[in-house]
Design a protein around this nucleic acid. Structure first.
Lengths: 213, 213
DNA sequence: AGCGAAAACCTAGTACGCTAGGTTTTCGGA
DNA sequence: TCCGAAAACCTAGCGTACTAGGTTTTCGCT
């Protein structure tokens, strides 16, 4: 029998101390990243926060980017949980309104959009770990949204000639693109309103009544 | 008289050697960044390429980010020049088609979109130099596109009830957001097609005939 | 021509991200 | 209970971005 299934296999998992430590690290990192920015926070500081050495921290997270990734993964999980609360039989209008609501929630969490933009850039490098995470996230985000739209189309609350995956991609692109413009404008841009305007345009082209939101 | 206007003012400008050096540095940096990526290229390498020390390089560009910025500024200038070729009396359809064409041009230049996404993230920090550049770029990009749309609206080739700045922002957001999805998909996504689909939707909502492209 | 001030460039040193390899701690099983 | 293997953690050292301060080069002006 191979070592993985053997009864005498070595201890594979983490120790209790390790799990607790990692959680503390992610919390400390999230706090510092949001507060002073990713670039400006030194790993040594985070390590100090949780009472270990920089080297010790790097045992748990192979690189600073991996740590950023862990923080973002945390956020994504919360985001996915929120979306799953949208009922399966939601009509087209409900779905578009949920998009707008999601943007408003993002705005409420300070520093989140900045971190998102940063991780996006990191993900541009195919060799990075962020790339894998983001590739998966985008795939599932597009798929989920497209799926909900397709379900609504079956129920007749979205036009039959709608290209659901394309609309889903576009909505996500607008959301990301406007978020970028928002951070760069220094918060001047009325992000929620801009997203609403787009959702309204989508509504006029994919809802059977041709009306906006 | 103040020192700025005095005939005995010190030599303010750069020397010929300096100008030439800076140009060489930007060229070398652009090449390396596109080839091996921003993070992976060391300043020492670029300095070697142009025959100076790392310290010497940092005399011309205060930081690696400033250098990246200089490279991007180069690209933006070329981009602006391209857009200025669009005639002032272009109708709504022409403008939307130009958007699609712009995307196709971006795709032709390898590494450009990656660099753009990277600089975007950098620009999220209000204290960075990239922030200022991007803020200006977005403002002028939105203004120019909105202006062209408004002109078309005056000529009747765009509906009278169109919110031109909003449409401009949305177009740019979609372009940026889809570019992000493109790099993350590893080039799998048909970017040009996705942009075309959006332009088509815009066309149906802002052109008088209600037709697509 | 050559003075002199500013640009151009270099050297030395610092902080940070990260690696390699060693030491200590945890904890399931004999 | 206590062995031992893996996790947890540390120390030492490297490469890179960047700073401070000094030296050399450029070039307008007299």
């Amino acid at each position: 029998m191979n070592p993985m299934t053997s009864s005498t296999q070595g201890r594979r998992g983490s120790y209790a101390v390790g799990v607790a430590r990692r959680q503390k690290i992610v919390e400390a990192a999230a706090k510092r990243f949001a507060l002073e920015g990713y670039q400006r926070t030194a790993l040594t500081r985070i390590a100090e926060d949780v009472g270990i050495t920089e080297g010790g921290l790097l045992h748990h997270f192979r690189s600073k980017k991996h740590l950023l990734l862990a923080v973002m993964e945390h956020r994504f999980t919360a985001e996915a949980a929120w979306w799953s609360r949208l009922p399966d039989d939601a009509d087209g209008r409900d779905i578009l309104r949920a998009m707008v609501a999601a943007t408003e929630r993002h705005l409420a969490e300070p520093g989140l959009i900045e971190l998102f933009v940063l991780t996006s850039a990191e993900a541009a490098d195919p060799a990075s770990a962020a790339h894998t995470l983001f590739a998966e996230r985008y795939q599932s985000a597009v798929d989920e949204l497209a799926g909900k739209l397709a379900a609504a189309r079956e129920l007749g609350s979205v036009r039959a000639d709608t290209d659901c995956p394309a609309v889903a991609r576009e909505c996500i692109a607008v959301s990301d693109g406007l978020q970028l413009q928002w951070v760069i404008s220094g918060g001047t841009l009325d992000l929620a309103d801009a997203v609403r305007l787009h959702a309204d345009r989508i509504a006029r082209t994919i809802l059977p009544d041709g009306e906006g939101l």
